[in-house]
């Protein structure tokens, strides 16, 4: 049972099942990996947007908190963390 990261509920840890690297530029893909966002790792979405829009998304990965856009989150399939 997988869902997309941009729709996952806030505050619930999930595991990244698959990333559609083709949905983003090489550059964006590389930065995602540099943040440690890759298949198999656990992330927790925490904050989403402001009054203006539901973009962007802040999430924790390991001991880091990073910001990505909903467009990239939509390319990330997640499953419930073990």
């Amino acid at each position: 049972m997988t869902a997309l990261l941009d729709k996952s509920p806030l505050g619930v840890a999930v595991r990244i099942a698959r990333i559609d690297w083709n949905a983003m530029s090489d550059h964006e893909g590389r930065r995602l990996r540099e943040f440690g966002l890759m298949e198999g790792c656990e992330v927790t979405p925490l904050h989403r947007g402001s009054i203006f829009s539901r973009d962007p998304l802040a999430l924790t990965v390991g001991r880091m908190k990073v910001i990505i856009r909903a467009r990239q989150a939509a390319a990330i399939e997640v499953e419930p963390a073990a």
């Binding site: 904050h47 947007g49 402001s50 009054i51 829009s53 973009d55 962007p56 910001i67 856009r69």
Partner: peptide, 19 residues
């Protein structure tokens, strides 16, 4: 400052910019 950029990104995204 990065938190401010996060909050402003939605508005700036609408005109094609980023936080």
């Amino acid at each position: 400052m990065t938190r401010a950029a996060f909050l402003m990104d939605g508005l700036m995204g609408k005109v094609g910019l980023s936080g």
